[in-house]
C-alpha cells in the first residue's frame, strides 16, 4: 500500500476515469491552464487537452447548466466549483434541473454528472467562503451527496460517482487536501468504493461518534482524548450523506447504546438532525441516553481565528459531548 495525499487521490480518480471513458470531461474555473485553484486538476490540461479539461469564465449558473444539458444527452461531465460556496448561484441548475429531469421526464432522461469542490471552512476565509452546503443538497431527492474524509475514500468514491448515472454532489475539504493516507496502487487494479456505505474508522465499545468529511478526522482526535480517560469511542464515518447508511450507524449504536453526531454545518435542520432522527426511529430501544449533536455554531462564520475555531467542532467539544451521553461529565 502506498500513501498519497487526498488531493492526488482525487486527481488520480479523475484522470483514470477520463482515460477509461471519453465521455468524461472536467470543467470549471481555473481547472485547465492555471492547473486548478487548489491544484486538484494539476497536469490534466497537459495530459487531456482543452477539449476535455475546460476552463470556464466565472459563470457557475451557466456552466453548471451546461453540464446538466450535456449529461442529459450522454456525456459524463465533472463540474468543479472552486468552492461549494459558489454553488449557491448555480443552485437552480442543481435543484430544478439536475435533480428533477429524470422524474419530470417520466424516466426518459438521466443526468450523470458530478459537481465537486471543497466544502466548509478553510482557514479564516470569512463567512461567505466557509459554508457547509451539505444539507442544502442532501435535502434534495434525485441527488446523491458524498463527503469522503480519507484519501482512499476520496479516490474510490469519486470514481464511483463518475460512473453513477445520477447527479452527484461531491463535497471535499480544503483542509483535507494535504492529508495523506493509504490508497491502493493503480497497478493493483481498478479501485472503486461503493456509494452508500458508511465506514467504521475506529472500533470502540462505549460511545458512537457519527461524522463525515473533515470532522471525521476531528472525531478521531476526540476518540484519542477519550481513550486517555478510559472511554472507548467508535467512530463511524458516513462517507455518503445521501444515501445515508443508517444500518452501519445502528449496528454501532447497538453495541455502544450512546451516540454523538458531529458535523461542521449549522445545527438547524442539518444532516446531523437527520442522523439523530434515524437513530431514534430505528434504534430507540438501544439507547441509554439522548443522542447529542456537536455542530458548527449557529452564526455566520467569523473571520477572527480564535472565534472561527470557537465556531467549529473541536476534539474537546466532541469528547465533552461523548462524556455527557455517558453521564460522566
Amino acid at each position: 500500500m502506498r500513501e498519497i495525499a487526498y488531493r492526488l487521490a482525487l486527481r488520480e480518480a479523475i484522470a483514470e476515469e477520463m482515460e477509461r471513458d471519453d465521455r468524461v470531461l472536467i470543467m470549471g474555473e481555473e481547472v485547465g491552464r492555471y492547473q486548478g485553484a487548489y491544484k486538484v486538476t494539476e497536469g490534466l490540461f497537459d495530459r487531456f487537452g482543452d477539449r476535455r479539461v475546460i476552463d470556464t469564465p466565472i459563470a457557475e449558473n451557466g456552466f453548471a447548466g451546461i453540464g446538466v444539458g450535456a449529461a442529459m444527452v450522454g456525456l459524463r461531465p465533472i463540474v468543479e466549483f472552486m468552492t461549494w460556496n459558489f454553488s449557491a448561484v448555480a443552485f437552480d441548475q442543481i435543484l430544478s434541473n439536475a435533480a428533477k429531469v429524470r422524474q419530470m421526464s417520466g424516466g426518459q432522461f438521466t443526468c450523470p454528472i458530478v459537481f465537486r469542490g471543497p466544502n466548509g471552512s478553510a482557514r479564516q476565509v470569512g463567512s461567505q467562503h466557509s459554508q457547509s452546503m451539505d444539507i442544502f443538497y442532501a435535502h434534495v431527492p434525485g441527488l446523491k451527496v458524498l463527503a469522503p474524509a480519507t484519501p482512499r475514500d476520496a479516490k474510490g468514491l469519486l470514481k464511483a460517482a463518475i460512473r453513477d448515472d445520477n447527479p452527484i454532489c461531491f463535497l471535499e475539504s480544503e483542509t483535507l487536501y494535504n492529508l495523506k493516507g493509504d490508497v491502493p496502487d493503480p497497478a493493483e487494479g481498478d479501485f472503486v468504493v461503493e456509494i452508500g456505505k458508511a465506514n467504521v474508522l475506529r472500533e470502540g465499545t462505549d460511545v458512537t461518534i457519527v461524522s463525515w468529511s473533515r470532522i471525521s478526522m476531528v472525531a478521531m482526535q476526540a476518540a484519542a482524548l477519550l481513550e486517555k480517560e478510559g472511554i472507548s469511542a467508535e467512530v463511524v464515518d458516513l462517507r455518503s450523506l445521501r444515501p445515508l447508511d443508517h444500518e452501519t450507524v445502528l449496528n454501532s449504536v447497538g453495541k455502544t447504546h450512546r451516540a454523538v453526531v458531529a458535523h461542521e454545518g449549522w445545527p438547524y435542520g442539518g444532516v446531523g438532525a437527520e442522523v439523530v432522527d434515524r437513530i431514534q426511529r430505528y434504534g430507540f430501544d438501544e439507547l441509554d441516553a439522548p443522542v447529542l449533536r456537536v455542530s458548527g455554531a449557529d452564526v455566520p462564520m467569523p473571520y477572527n481565528a480564535k472565534l472561527e475555531q470557537y465556531c467549529l467542532p473541536q476534539p474537546e467539544t466532541i469528547a465533552a459531548a461523548c462524556k455527557k451521553v455517558l453521564y460522566r461529565d
Binding site: 449558473n61 451557466g62 456552466f63 453548471a64 447548466g65 451546461i66 453540464g67 446538466v68 444539458g69 450535456a70 449529461a71 442529459m72 444527452v73 450522454g74 456525456l75 437552480d92 441548475q93 430544478s96 434541473n97
Partner: peptide, 13 residues
C-alpha cells in the same frame, strides 16, 4: 433556467 441546459446539449454535440 433551461437556457444553460440547452447550451449544454449544443456543447455535447
Amino acid at each position: 433556467g433551461h437556457i444553460p441546459l440547452a447550451v449544454g446539449c449544443a456543447f455535447a454535440s
